[in-house]
Every structure is written in structure tokens, then in C-alpha cells.
Design a protein around this nucleic acid. Structure first.
Lengths: 240, 240
DNA sequence: CATCTTTAAGTCAATATGACCTTTAGGGGT
DNA sequence: ACCCCTAAAGGTCATATTGACTTAAAGATG
């Protein structure tokens, strides 16, 4: 935004991209959408979907476009927030590349269809990346690690967990989101009490759903609250 | 990071800058460091310090350099974190400008000396900007508003408040930080109990300080904890 | 209609919080 | 020396929240 140094010798033009960490919960695991790169560098290696920001396009619009183009996902119903900028030292003779990472959260999304290119898009367990089982292109492993930390913390003091659920959901589904992402079981009764006592977290639809077995569950939809106060904390301390 | 679209018609080179929202507490008010712009655009108007990121320089290093060059502040003792990327639609024929905003927090810093250019640097009350009393260049008012929100929230669940204090401080000084930034009084006794019972928040130095009047205050230094759990919440709800 | 499973609701001790009060340790004035 | 003022330090107590646990309710199955 400032132009004080424009034209100074050390200044160079840059390329700005957006990369997307798209999270969902599938089969009891937190998954992230990956693509296999169809070109250099890192040809054939797994990476986050993303691409160059176009002229006259806001960063957010670019993220939404990539979401659609590379993952075949309509972003209008997803939670989408900016994670931050990653601008490691240049590795391309054409100039520096700075990527703006976006975090997208959605309900158990359909297996993505192939993107615009011949790139294969698929869900991978986040644990495979954080445990370094899968090695990603660029610094995408770092981005996913940051995204995971962000999600874990935000589950505590915001209502984003509902972004992983569909239009309506049972409290046990919402609780499963927490359990999967935090990697720890929660007491069903205490969770229910906490969620229902937090004004605006969820809103009863009045409908019910029959589980495969057991008592019918009341259904809820996301409430208007964005922040939870007091927050829903993990039992053991999460810091020092 | 991704190169899928490099060379496509809609892609353009960009200019990457860093802008700094440097906060401190002076005379019972939260202040932000501003400069009066010495060139176009927005000549003469107030703006955040910042500038172009140089070749082979990390974003963080660029922020630290600008901190030193434009504000005369040694950033090694400040809290410095990335706030996010701001990439409004291009307004410059040479291409898009994306700025990476950084948030810096420090103790009552000396009145900054003039920067490298003839630009005048000075502290301005944040309230003057959020109340639109002072109009800033670019979208810097938005950045400051976001920074303020970030700081207010982080006071709750992190130990960043100590970043506003010096090497050692009395609990009343730490409390004043909260009161000034949250804009609400806190019960001294309850605040003390909370801070001292939160392991790792502060650490007693064993020394004392004589206030202008009243009983000597024990001094503390920042603890090792980065996160507070449970958090130190504002009394009234802060969102719905 | 007994049983299984899951949701829903209740109990109770431990902990944390908010509001408020008392004591302590200085300095200043008389 | 003594009293008063101020702010720090420490304590009380009712209330709210949490964690661990128990009990009741509503379906499906055989």
C-alpha cells in the first residue's frame, strides 16, 4: 500500500497466488483436499489447490474461483477465511511468489471431480501430512499445519464447527466434529449442556432424525452467533 | 505457490508491500504509529509505516526493516505477528499492490525519530481512527480496525498483554493495559487472582517498585506461557 | 415385551468468577 | 511521632460453570 520505495533497486515485481486448505470431516477423520501437480515445479507431487490471482480480482474472489475451478466446489456455502500470507524467499527467476492461504471448511463434501486441468483432486487425511507421511509441494505442509492449529483453536471460541455440518445436524454429529479435530472424546451430556446453553450457537429446527439405532435425535441448524463466550475449552490445557 | 496459471492472459505481476500497525499504550490510551506520506498517492495524508518488500527478504524481515527504517524502532524486543494480506483491486497502472499487514506491540515506546525520508512519524490514538476522526491513506483504517479487534481478542486467551509492558511491571500496569484496550474497568483484586493463578502468565522478579503514592508493588516479568487457559474474559459478552 | 442403542436429562462435588471487604506498606503533612 | 491518604495485597462469600457420573426416554429388533 505504501509506495515509498517503489523503484528502489532492491524492489522486484512479484506473483501473487492463492492456495486453499479445504477441510472436511469424512469417515471420522479430518481431511484436506489435495491435487497432484500437473506441471513443474514439483511435477506429480501433491499440493494444495490454488493458482494465480487475476487482474481486477479480489483475493477472496480468487480463492472462490480456484475453489470452483480446481475442486469443483461451490464456495458460496462454505466457510472461507484468510489464513495468512506465505512469502518464502524467491525460488523462481521470474520473481518472488507470495501466496495468500485461505482456509475453507465444509460438510462432508462429494469426492471432487477433476479440475480444469488434468489434475487429480482427492481427499487426504490431515494426519498423513502433519506426520510427514505425505510430503507436499512448496511450503504447503506448513500451511496445513497452521490451518489445523487455527481450526483447533477456533473450535474453542467460535461456532465454526457448524461449518463442517450440513444444513441441519444432530448434536452428536456436532460433537463428533470436535472429537475428530481435537482428537479427544467429549462427554456427550456435558457437550449437549454447553452447546444448548450457549445462546446462538445452534437453533432447534423442531425436526428429528432416526439414527441407525437408538432414540431419535433432535435436529439443529447453525445459530447466528459467531463467537462463543465463554468458550468451549478442551479439558486438558492446550498451551503452557 | 502454484503455477497452474502462470502466463495466462489475466495474470499480472504485482507489488508486495508490508505495512505495520504498531500499537503501544501511552498516557492511558492505545496509540498507533502513523507517518505523513511524503509522496503520491495520498501525499501528505496519514498512513501506516510500510514499504516494498525487497528481493531475497522474507516478509517478516521486511516488516522488521520497515520498523527500523520508518519508525526507528528495534523490532527484536517487540511482539510482531502477521495480521493478514490486503489486496484491494488495483489502483496503479503498474499493477496490483498486495500488502501484508503486520501487527507490532511494544511498551511505551519513545517518540519515534524521523524515518529515512523526511516523513514525520508520530503516535495517534487508535480511537481517532476507528471513530473516523482521522482519515488514513489506502485501506489503512481497515487494517487498524482489524488489528484492534485482533488485539482485543488476543488479550483474552493469550499473554500478549505483557508485550505492552517493559521488562518488569506491576500487576496494576498490566491491568491498565487491559482496561485501556478493552475500554472497561477491571476489578483489581480479581484481576490479580486470575493472573497469578494462571500458570506461566507472569513470573515474580522479587523486586518492588514505589508508586507515586501507596504501598510498594511487587514486580513481575512475562512468563513462558503464550496461551491462557482458561482465558481471561471480558465480563460482558463480546459477540453473539 | 425384553433388550439393545443412542438421545436426553439430572445429580453433585470441584472449580472459577464477580462483587465486595479488610489489611498492609509506603509517603506526606502537622 | 502520629494521623491520613493511596494503592497493593489478601480474604470472604454467593453464584455460575465444569467434569464425572447416573438415570430416564424413545425408537428398532427379535
Amino acid at each position: 500500500m505504501n509506495d515509498q520505495l517503489k523503484g528502489a533497486t532492491e524492489v522486484e515485481p512479484s506473483w501473487v497466488t492463492v492456495d486453499l486448505a479445504i477441510f472436511t470431516v469424512r469417515s471420522e477423520r479430518l481431511m484436506v483436499l489435495l491435487i497432484d501437480r500437473g506441471r513443474q515445479p514439483y511435477l506429480g507431487q501433491a499440493a494444495l489447490p490454488g493458482g494465480y490471482v487475476r487482474k481486477n480480482e479480489t483475493l477472496r474472489a480468487g480463492a472462490l474461483r480456484e475453489l470452483r475451478e480446481e475442486a469443483g466446489i461451490d464456495g458460496s456455502r462454505l466457510h472461507l477465511e484468510q489464513l495468512g500470507a506465505y512469502g518464502d524467499p524467491p525460488r523462481d527467476p521470474r520473481g518472488r511468489v507470495v501466496t495468500i492461504a485461505y482456509l475453507a471448511l465444509g460438510p462432508d463434501l462429494p469426492v471432487p471431480v477433476g479440475g480444469t486441468d488434468a489434475e487429480h483432486a482427492y481427499w487426504a487425511p490431515v494426519s498423513d501430512i502433519t506426520s510427514a507421511t505425505v510430503r507436499l509441494a512448496f511450503d504447503h505442509s506448513d500451511i496445513i499445519a497452521d490451518a489445523l492449529e487455527e481450526v483447533r483453536r477456533k473450535l474453542e471460541y467460535t461456532a465454526i464447527a457448524t461449518a463442517f455440518c450440513g444444513e441441519s445436524f444432530a448434536l452428536s454429529e456436532l460433537r463428533r466434529i470436535y472429537e475428530v479435530i481435537w482428537g479427544q472424546p467429549l462427554d456427550p451430556s456435558n457437550f449437549r449442556r454447553k452447546v444448548l446453553n450457549t445462546k446462538g450457537f445452534v437453533q432447534a429446527t423442531g425436526e428429528q432424525r432416526l439414527p441407525p439405532t437408538g432414540r431419535p435425535a433432535a435436529l439443529y441448524r447453525p445459530g447466528e452467533a459467531r463467537l462463543l463466550s465463554p468458550p468451549l475449552l478442551r479439558s486438558n490445557g492446550h498451551g503452557t
